[in-house]
């Protein structure tokens, strides 16, 4: 073995690692590629067997996703003016007309409001609580922290019935506020614990220096602690968003109209006109985007989170 340090992996080890990582990535990405490609297939291509890897791309799935359509007879069609847009033409070719927009857009918006709203609230409250637990002498601190963690010791859905009844009493069923509060409550324990770990890592001396320099406790928190906890806050936010964004069981139980999120809505697309798999796949593909964009935006902080550490001399 020639001149590499003991801690540095050998060339061979690096190759093995690279092959394993790439193989793993491919396996993980296959279902994702499947969904994305199905979204661009025509309904017949989508269910053909053996599955088509090469196909003529079509936007029919996306058009079906965003519209409701009704069938028309050929004589009726003759009375209509020719289609004006590409998507009207696409629909007309199947002997249908667009009756109006579907509810997907609105459900998607609900997911955005509820997902990001609860993420913001979880991280905001979590940061304040974590700071207090990290820095102040809180009575029965350890018991409180254990209690907060214990809310995650059973699956949240175990308390579905009481929450269902409670929400009905309080008028929170099928409201944005209700879902935001629920997801915040579930995420808060994770957020407090994760953030406390990050804030514990920041030496107190930094805030103390700011206090001596004439800043208030809150200013020291904002100008010194927050920037240094940015990596931790970003990774916590991603975890919170992923949970709230993907949550299915509570969404099915507690939302049906006004505040229904995308996860319970997407399966209902199947029923609209036969087995419309391209529309379902299109709905799922678009649904993936916000979390992906959010994660990519915060990626820099995630990487920094790994090398987290203060200036040590």
């Amino acid at each position: 073995m020639s001149g590499h340090s003991i801690t540095e992996p050998t060339r061979r080890q690096k190759w093995i690692a690279a092959v394993l990582v790439i193989a793993y990535t491919v396996i993980i990405l296959i279902p994702l590629l499947w969904i994305i490609s199905t979204g661009f297939k025509s309904p017949s291509d989508a269910i053909s067997y053996p599955p088509k890897v090469i196909f003529t791309p079509s936007l029919e799935g996306y058009v079906n996703l965003f519209t409701t359509q009704t069938r028309i007879t050929p004589d009726m069609e003759a009375t209509l003016p020719p289609p004006e847009t590409w998507y009207e033409r696409l629909v007309r070719e199947k002997g249908m007309v667009i009756a109006g927009p579907s509810r997907y857009g609105q459900r998607f918006l609900n997911s955005v409001i509820i997902g990001f709203g609860s993420t913001f609230l979880s991280v905001f409250l979590g940061t304040l609580a974590a700071y207090a637990f990290s820095r102040f002498r809180v009575p029965i601190k350890d018991d409180l922290l254990f209690f907060i963690l214990s809310t995650r010791m059973m699956p949240p859905i175990a308390v579905a019935i009481p929450i269902f009844l409670m929400y009905r009493q309080l008028g929170l069923s099928d409201t944005h506020l209700g879902m935001i509060l629920l997801y915040t409550a579930v995420n808060l324990s994770l957020s407090v614990w994760l953030l406390k770990g990050f804030i514990d890592e920041i030496p107190r001396e930094y805030e103390e220096a700011a206090l001596i320099d004439g800043y208030t406790r809150f200013q020291a928190f904002r100008k010194v602690v927050l920037p240094q906890a940015a990596a931790g806050i970003a990774s916590t936010a991603i975890f919170c968003l992923i949970f709230a964004w993907n949550e299915y069981a509570f969404a099915v139980l507690l939302t049906s109209g006004e505040a229904q999120t995308a996860p319970p809505f997407i399966p209902t697309i199947i029923g609209v006109g036969g087995q419309d798999w391209p529309a379902v796949a299109a709905g799922a593909t678009l649904f993936l985007l916000p979390v992906m964009i959010f994660t990519i935006m915060l990626r820099k902080h995630l990487l920094r989170g790994i090398t987290f550490g203060a200036v040590r001399k």
Partner: peptide
């Protein structure tokens, strides 16, 4: 501390890394 107008150089961790 803010009202006392003293300055302090700490043994460690004196500069804000960000």
């Amino acid at each position: 501390p803010a009202e006392r107008n003293v300055a302090m150089v700490f043994q460690q961790y004196s500069l804000y890394p960000h």
